[in-house]
Design a protein around this nucleic acid. Structure first.
Lengths: 154, 154
DNA sequence: TAAGATTGAGTCCTCAATCTTC
DNA sequence: GAAGATTGAGGACTCAATCTTA
């Protein structure tokens, strides 16, 4: 009756943590040959897909779910490898605008093809309807948690 | 059309990562006053709830989703604080059996009450049916990913 | 040989503090 | 003063390697 407290393994945050951990490890492994961290992939993906939307480090860190220092370090590395370009001032002195380079775009394509395959394997146990359901639930949670949500835009 | 590759923000692993990150950060914050890591909480929870089932470090690491070295370090700290007991040999020489102490059990209760409140706040945006749906989907994913699943047992 | 536990090296992250510019 | 970017210190985790015992 008081196993109210015994349901630990059934709590959603616990389940999410487990699933994320497994997926995350697989992603890291897939990313290793490219020497990219998840934060770096996230930054490249945002820069590569957001129409012609270059961003500031602050914005990238927020959308990627990492702290500004983490993103700062990630970008410094990417810039050193010529995958992104940091232009010190747009017209505003303290913002550093970040944009993806063509080399970055090329790498992004490669990585996305590689990770997509692995992902489909991992998601294979869910049919299309279930995946859609899961996506909706997670997006609802993101809204509730005040996380940045990429627009639905078909 | 080829935004096949543009759907990054809609991919389930990405969504899971974002949600987990937010929940994880909140849990860490809630755990901070108790100086517990998530791996340590997981270990205490397993030891505290598994009927009278003490476990080996290997088993705890597997169920907690961390590597054996991580769990080893976590347990060493817990043992140093008197929250778990490590008895070097059950009848078997190389296994270290781990059991929770009464102090550990007491702390576990406290922490679970504290985290439960925060969790309910975080999950508040989903109604009971949605939570059940999400739980089912995540459990299905765990099975597909070959993760350890706590038995359903009502 | 194989399995459990541990140690050591390396990485990515967070937090707190600082520097700069509006 | 407030916001963006960065630096420095500290923590938790992983991987690879080692030690020990069945």
């Amino acid at each position: 009756m008081d196993d109210d407290v015994t349901d630990f393994g059934m709590r959603i945050p616990y389940l999410i943590r487990q699933v994320n951990h497994a997926l995350s490890q697989r992603l890291d492994r897939a990313l290793k040959p490219y020497s990219l961290t998840q934060a770096q992939l996230s930054a490249l993906a945002i820069l590569g897909h957001q129409h012609p939307a270059p961003s500031s480090g602050a914005e990238l860190s927020q959308r990627s779910g990492v702290t500004p220092p983490s993103m700062s370090a990630a970008l410094a590395d990417l810039a050193g490898r010529g995958l992104v370009r940091r232009t010190p001032h747009p017209t505003h002195g303290r913002i550093v605008e970040v944009g993806i380079t063509s080399a970055g775009r090329k790498l992004l394509r490669e990585v996305q093809v590689a990770t997509k395959a692995a992902e489909e394997r991992d998601m294979g146990g869910l049919d299309a309807a279930q995946q859609e359901q899961l996506r909706d639930l997670l997006r609802t949670m993101m809204r509730n948690l005040d996380l940045y949500l990429p627009r639905e835009e078909k």
